[in-house]
Amino acid sequence: MRTSDCDVVVVGVGGQGVILISEIIGKAAMMAGLSVRGVETHGMAQRGGSVINHIRVGCRYSAMISPGGADILLAMEPAEALRYASYLSPDGVALVNTRPLLPVTVTTGQASYPSLEEILAPLREVSSRVYPMDATGLAAEAGSPQAANVVMLGALARHLPIGEERLLEALSEIVPARFLEVNRKAFELGKIEVE
C-alpha cells in the first residue's frame, strides 16, 4: 500500500546543495497544496561528508523512505548514488551527476575512485531508468558550477507531481535574486538533458 504520491531520496556530499534541493521541493509541494514530509541525515556535511535527504510528497504517514521504496534517487555525486542505491525502487528513476568530488583518501593516493561504469552498473541492475548527466558542466554553461543542484532539480521536475511552475516559484523565493538568472538557466538545461 502506497502512503505517498512520490518518494525522493536526494544524496550528495556537504556543500553540493542537497539540503537546498530538498527545501525547494518541500516549498513547491506546499505551494501546490500537497503535504510533504522530509528527513535529512548528514555526517560532516560542512566538510564534504555524506548527506541524504528523504522527501515524501503527498505523504500520509512516516517521513522515512524504506529501502527499495524511492521513486527517484537524485545523486549529486556518483559514489553517493552507489552508496544509497538500495533505496531505489525497481520502477524508480536514478538521476546521477557524473562529476565526482574526490575524497581526501583518493586525492592523497590512499584509495582509488571507481570508474563511472563501476558506479552505474549496479544502479542499472536495480532500475533500467538510470540517467547520468554532467550537471556540474551544464551548470558552468549556465554561468556557475555551483548551480549543479539546480540543473539536477530541472532534470527532476518532470518526475515530480508538483509542476515545473511551482518549482520555479519556490526557487525564486529561496535563492537570492542576484543568482536567479543563472539558476533559471541551470534549471532549463537540466530539463533538456533528460527529455
Rank of each mutant, 00 (worst) to 15 (best):
G49I: 01
G43N: 02
T108L: 15
H54F: 14
P161W: 05
K191R: 15
P103Y: 00
L95H: 07
R184A: 09
H54G: 11
I162A: 11
P67W: 00
K185W: 02
R83A: 10
E80L: 09
S172T: 08
V150M: 12
Y84P: 04
S62N: 11
I25V: 15
A147L: 03
G43H: 00
H42M: 07
L167I: 06
D5T: 08
A157V: 00
A32F: 08
E118F: 06
V175T: 11
V57Y: 04
R124W: 03
V182C: 07
Q110F: 12
Y131N: 04
E80P: 10
C6A: 13
V182T: 14
V96Q: 02
G68C: 06
E40V: 02
L88H: 06
E165A: 15
L20W: 00
E169H: 03
A32D: 14
T3K: 12
V175R: 06
L95F: 01
A135T: 03
L120K: 09
P67G: 11
P90S: 12
I72W: 03
A186N: 05
L73W: 10
M64D: 10
V36M: 11
K185S: 12
G163C: 02
G33Y: 09
G17L: 03
G68V: 05
S144T: 00
L167A: 07
E77K: 07
L138G: 04
A79H: 08
V39I: 14
V18E: 02
P145H: 00
V11S: 11
L120R: 11
A177G: 03
L82N: 13
N149I: 00
E195M: 13
A140G: 07
G15Q: 01
I21L: 12
S50C: 01
V126R: 15
I72H: 03
L95C: 07
G92C: 11
V130P: 12
E164G: 13
L153I: 03
V151L: 09
L167W: 06
G43A: 14
T108A: 10
I25E: 08
K191V: 10
G15E: 00
V9T: 12
I119E: 05
R56P: 12
L95A: 04
T105Q: 10
V39T: 15
F187K: 04
Y87D: 08
V93Q: 03
I174S: 12
G14P: 00
I72T: 04
V126Y: 01
L160D: 14
A140I: 00
T98H: 09
E23S: 14
P176L: 07
P78D: 11
G58S: 05
N97C: 11
G38P: 08
D91H: 13
I24M: 04
E181F: 09
L120T: 10
L138M: 13
A45G: 15
R47L: 02
L82C: 08
H54V: 05
N53A: 15
A79D: 13
L74V: 13
I65S: 09
V130E: 08
R184G: 05
I119R: 07
L102G: 06
E188A: 13
R83Q: 07
T136R: 04
M76E: 08
